[in-house]
Structure formats: C-alpha cells, structure tokens
C-alpha cells in the first residue's frame, strides 16, 4: 500500500492521472486533480505510480 498526495497548485488539469488511474484520481469541476483513494494497493497502486510518472506538472507524490 502507498500513500498518495497531490499539489493542486501545480496541477494543470491535463487528466493524465485520471486516464491512467481512474480509481485513484479524478478531476473536480474546475479541472483540478482530486484524490479518490489516498492509500491504494495492488493494481490501483501500480496505476497511481504510472500516473505519477505521466503527470506533466509533477504534481503527484507517492509515499511508501
């Protein structure tokens, strides 16, 4: 299991995270990232790590 946090100040609403890990991330009506599951495990955790690598604004942190 990993802990997820995001820096909405950096987020540019590209939605890479929503596409890569829809169980972990969503966008609010303003387009900014929201965390749906801040301690994912298994496949969702792996997807969240992928999303961290894809995020163009480096707004996602994954803590072990």
């Amino acid at each position: 299991m990993a802990g997820i946090s995001v820096d909405t100040g950096k987020c540019i609403g590209s939605a890479q995270c929503v596409l890569a890990a829809p169980d972990v991330f969503d966008q609010d009506d303003d387009g900014f990232v929201v965390v749906l599951d801040d301690s994912p495990s298994g496949a969702a955790e792996a997807a969240a790590r992928t999303a961290r690598g894809l995020c163009p604004a480096q707004a996602i942190s994954v803590h072990d």
Partner: peptide, 12 residues
C-alpha cells in the same frame, strides 16, 4: 489562462 480553460477540457 490555463485555470480559466481547464474546466472546458476535463475528461468528463
């Protein structure tokens, strides 16, 4: 600008 525009380009 980005903040103004992203609501129009969300996945939903």
């Amino acid at each position: 600008f980005r903040k103004a525009l992203i609501p129009e380009f969300t996945v939903r």
